[in-house]
Design a binder for these strands. Structure first.
Lengths: 224, 224
DNA sequence: ATAGCCATGACCGATTCGGTCACGGTTATT
DNA sequence: AATAACCGTGACCGAATCGGTCATGGCTAT
């Protein structure tokens, strides 16, 4: 009857279908019929699981923001691990990638949800973010400029002197976005190839961004 | 009466509105009412200009692919200019940016059009690309591995040894995509700030990708 | 035999779709 | 001043689609 009592595989089929359709068309233009078809079930039974469109959207939205935040926190908060940006980048890439493998459209959905112009989305997403997500970082931490996510690491460590951490972060973000977005439109994804490809891009970023103090040995051209 | 006889400013309003709505929602889910509203005109008069939705879409599609190809060709084909990738990148950035300023959504539209699942789009876009766009590069040129766009430049010149031209080009693409996409969701764009920001990112890319000057005329290595 | 569960296609009223048209205001010509 | 030509608009059309419901029929366990 309820969505939560379904077997995990069926749940994920619905989640992925909803993520994809909502991400592609936005809340208003995404139709429940399209979502049902993408999930491979009938529209009627979809409504029995999720009761209505608004509930489905909020369910997906909460799942998405929870998963993404959790994935980030896991990779950031690891104790005893290296504290430089590149190690963090590698750890974070792992968790992001495993989330991507389970829910390929979750990042795209999360991104579009933040810019959706529909009034229902605007109202509820904003409310959700303010009343429910924010307590993770209490105001004193924000005010003092501290952030539990970036607090443990030294953003300058290992970074070349002529590039600021802000720029490095932006670059990393754009590369991972570009790489993953490209994969979204392939019909099927080979998990191994996905991971290998991602890792070699991280290698490239590290080559480009790493400071001269650590690895000055100019590597010869790689395979590609 | 016809679209072509309108004053340029009104034409551009319609083009930009259609680009934005089609890019955001795809062909099928984009409604003529939304496009008319975004253009600030009534739906009735929009139909008088463009006769129907399919014609409007093809009009925009042809404009987009023509403009983008032309912008690229201009920056690539400039005679007597430097032949290394960085100079080419800077020239290309200028033409892309000026096109972006006139039609901000044109790149996003062009990208989404290629992946649109609607059967009308799939049929006509493919037909258009095969029968109408290809003659610019005749088959003998393609077969011989020569390409008028990349033929004039030495992709290895100035590039650091441990990064391949393919990677450099992909990186440049993702950075410009990321930068421009970010601007799409701002309410208003300051042209000066837009250009300055873009140029500083090109500077950063050049810092990261430039290698020690090495003479390179490895002509057997071709393709990006 | 039957009671309970579950998925489906047909169906609901309401909205929106692409597209048209009669009408009113404006301008140019006579 | 009269009129013809033009142009933009709101109301409107039948058809399609929207979110959501429900009677039906197959399947399973008692």
């Amino acid at each position: 009857m309820t969505f939560e009592k379904l077997e995990k595989e069926k749940q994920n089929k619905i989640i992925n279908a909803a993520c994809e359709i909502f991400a592609k068309h936005g809340y208003k233009k995404a139709s429940m019929k399209d979502i049902a078809e993408a999930a491979g079930i009938s529209k009627s039974v979809l409504f029995k699981y999720v009761s209505n469109k608004e509930n489905l959207y909020m369910k997906i939205f909460r799942l998405a923001s929870d998963s993404i935040i959790e994935a980030d926190e896991i990779s950031y908060a690891e104790e005893g691990s290296d504290s430089d940006m590149f190690s963090l980048m590698r750890r974070n890439a792992k968790t992001r990638l495993s989330l991507f493998k389970e829910y390929p459209w979750i990042y795209k959905f999360s991104y579009t949800a933040a810019f959706d112009n529909d009034c229902f989305v605007k109202e509820h997403v904003r409310m959700e973010l303010e009343n429910y997500r924010k307590p993770r970082f209490n105001t004193s931490e924000i005010k003092s400029g501290h952030n539990p996510i970036t607090d443990g690491i030294d953003v300058y460590k290992g970074l070349r002197a002529d590039i600021s951490p802000t720029i490095a972060k932006q670059l990393i973000l754009w590369v991972s976005q570009g790489y993953l977005e490209e994969k979204l439109f392939k019909d099927e994804i080979d998990p191994d190839e996905l991971e290998k490809g991602f890792e070699s891009w991280i290698d490239i970023l590290e080559i480009l961004l790493k400071g001269s103090n650590r690895s000055c040995d100019c590597k010869e051209q790689k395979g590609w």
